[in-house]
Simulated assay, not measured.
Amino acid sequence: MDLGFEVVDFAESDHVEPGEQAPDFTRPLVNDEYWADASLSELAAENPVLLVFHPMDGDFPATYIWQEVRDRDWLEYDAQLVGLSISTPYEHKEFIREWNGFDEFQFFSDPANSVAEEYGIVHDLDGMAGIAEPKPAVFLIDEEMTVEWAWVAETWPDFPPYDAIEAELAEL
């Protein structure tokens, strides 16, 4: 079966695990109206955060991930849904504008990919020297900044276990 793309195995990662402290960071947080610097700890102090690392905006896995999240209506749960990628705030604004229903989400912008480094989920893009992005990953972080649940992709493309995430959100 010709998929039209190559499946790539990721190198094993030493990522943040459940029970460990989530690395805090401050980056531009983009919504449908504006963006401003925000820290993960500020968000987590209000409600648990479901932090979804995804490929750059416009890449089909990023679009697919957020369409699935939108269609499952995870906004009904007691957690803040926040994306993070190497895309700039301008690219996030376009991503939100382009897709119906994405205006309910917020996205951290991390063009240097340093947050993915802190979380242990960096993926060097093949054939592009010095260019990296986060592996697809999901971390559920509580108000004390403890990782309650985590998933990190093992291949590209790989998609989060949506049913398992939904079960974790339902437990909140």
Rank of each mutant, 00 (worst) to 15 (best):
P23N: 07
I86D: 00
F105H: 01
F5G: 01
G101Y: 08
A22Q: 07
E143F: 06
T88E: 09
Q80D: 12
D103P: 02
N47V: 13
D110Y: 04
A36F: 12
Y77P: 00
P136D: 05
I96P: 02
D57S: 14
G120M: 05
E91H: 10
E118V: 01
E118H: 12
I121C: 01
K93L: 13
V115G: 00
Y64D: 09
T63V: 10
A129C: 03
D124E: 15
D103H: 08
P134M: 11
A116G: 09
I65T: 08
D71K: 12
L84T: 00
Q21H: 10
N47T: 15
P111I: 12
N100Q: 10
D103K: 01
A132H: 03
E68N: 11
A22I: 05
S13Y: 05
D59A: 10
H92V: 09
E94C: 02
P48F: 11
V49D: 00
N31P: 02
E42S: 11
P18S: 12
L51R: 05
W66T: 01
T63F: 00
R70G: 02
E42P: 00
A132M: 09
D126L: 13
E98P: 00
E42L: 08
D57G: 13
A79G: 02
L50P: 01
T26Y: 09
R97F: 08
F25P: 01
S109D: 05
L43C: 05
G83M: 07
V16A: 03
D24I: 11
M56T: 14
A79T: 06
D57T: 11
D71L: 10
W35R: 07
D9T: 14
V8D: 10
Q106D: 06
D9G: 03
Y34H: 15
E76W: 03
S87E: 04
F107C: 06
G101F: 06
E42M: 08
F60H: 09
V138H: 03
D78C: 03
S85P: 04
Q21N: 08
Y90A: 14
S114Q: 15
P61H: 07
A137K: 01
F53M: 08
F107Y: 12
I86S: 03
F25V: 11
G120Q: 05
A38M: 13
F102S: 04
W66Q: 01
Y34G: 06
V49S: 01
V8Y: 13
V8T: 15
V7M: 07
M56H: 13
E91P: 00
F10Y: 14
D24T: 03
V122W: 10
Q21P: 00
F95I: 06
A36T: 11
Y119Q: 04
D59R: 12
L125M: 15
P134R: 01
F105M: 02
M56Y: 05
P136I: 02
A79W: 04
N113S: 13
G19S: 08
S114W: 11
Y34T: 14
E144F: 10
S41Y: 03
D73I: 05
M56F: 09
S85R: 03
P134L: 11
L51D: 09
D124W: 14
R27G: 02
P134E: 08
G83E: 08
A36N: 12
D110A: 02
F139I: 11
D59M: 12
D126W: 13
R70H: 10
K93Y: 08
G19V: 06
D59K: 07
Y64K: 13
E6K: 15
E91Q: 15
D71A: 10
E46Y: 03
M145N: 06
